[in-house]
Computed example of a mutant assay.
Amino acid sequence: MILSGKRALITGGSSGIGFATARALGEKGVALAITGRRTDQLAGAVEALQRAGTSVTGIVADVATTEGRRQTLDHALGALSGLDILVNNAGGVRAGRLEQVTEEDILAMIAVDLAAPILLTRTALPVLRASGEGMVVNISSGLGLVGAPFYATYAGAKAGLARFGEALRRELKGEGVHVLTVYPGATDTPMMASNTAGPELGFTRESAEAVAAAIVAGIEAEALEVIRGGEARAAMITLNRDDPLAIDARFLNLKARLEEAVKEHAAL
């Protein structure tokens, strides 16, 4: 895909991977609409992007709600006069033992990490088809490939998003809309600020800018997926497929320390 002149909507675009992706796409000549729930943070992101020469509109909305999704798409189409790329990036997490995570937090994760991307994509499909060269980019997670203890609901939602994207890609084949799934690893973003797990527990962080560069390269190449984490992640994915009990044993040795390190990890 040639990005110059394209129009993109990025949910959760005011910080972290979403903002870094907005900046990277803006540098390629993409006109943007970005969403966020926090007015001040969104305004700061829009100002920073505009200073860099990007054409961008900010939309204050919660895409986990029906009204928020309606506002998002209405305002984006009004500003961009169409849509070529939808980046489903907005997400939330609450780590902890399943029986200790509240029902409210479980439903919130499912709403923003799984239901929102499905429903927003459903509504956006006619305009993406009209583009003639549309693309949906779903930001899943490395935990959607290899489940980790204390992230049961989050991993389930992100794995669900990945399979949604795979199925939808095949459903839309030959219709002018491609679907790309992205699996970031631990990324140095505000969403990770309350997680104190380090490399010794499998959380080696990389910059949001590095993830964004890989996303943009994946869009340009019309790739099927972008998996971050390098050789170590690739080896874990292979081992999880071939010998999942070995991964079970590895997590068993780390479990007590991991539980302590992620017990306050919350961004909803």
Score class of each variant (00 low, 15 high):
N240I: 02
A155G: 15
G160K: 09
S4V: 08
A33Y: 07
T11S: 03
R250K: 13
L49M: 04
E200Q: 04
A61P: 15
D74Y: 08
V177L: 07
T187I: 02
R70D: 07
V60Y: 04
R129I: 01
V46R: 01
L86W: 00
E209T: 12
M236Y: 01
R205H: 00
I85G: 03
S14W: 13
E259A: 10
A152M: 11
L25H: 06
A124G: 00
A197L: 06
G142C: 00
M191G: 07
A217F: 10
R122A: 06
S15L: 13
T65E: 02
V211S: 10
L80E: 04
T204D: 08
G5K: 06
A214T: 07
L125S: 06
S4M: 12
S4A: 13
A130P: 00
L245M: 13
E175R: 14
L83F: 05
G92R: 06
L201S: 01
A61M: 08
D188K: 09
G44H: 02
F251R: 01
A61N: 10
A210T: 10
R70T: 14
I227C: 05
A111C: 01
R250T: 13
L254D: 07
G218F: 09
A186V: 03
F251Q: 10
G29H: 06
I227D: 02
L180M: 05
E166Q: 12
M192H: 09
A246M: 09
V211C: 07
A8N: 03
S207E: 06
G132I: 08
S14C: 05
E264W: 04
E206D: 11
I227W: 06
A76E: 03
V262R: 05
R228A: 13
A261K: 05
L161R: 10
R233M: 15
T35M: 02
L49Q: 02
E209P: 12
A24W: 04
T102P: 00
V262K: 03
E133N: 14
K158M: 09
V137T: 04
L98K: 07
M109A: 07
T11D: 02
R233I: 05
S55D: 14
E104A: 15
M135F: 03
T35Q: 00
A79P: 00
Y183Q: 10
A108H: 11
N253F: 11
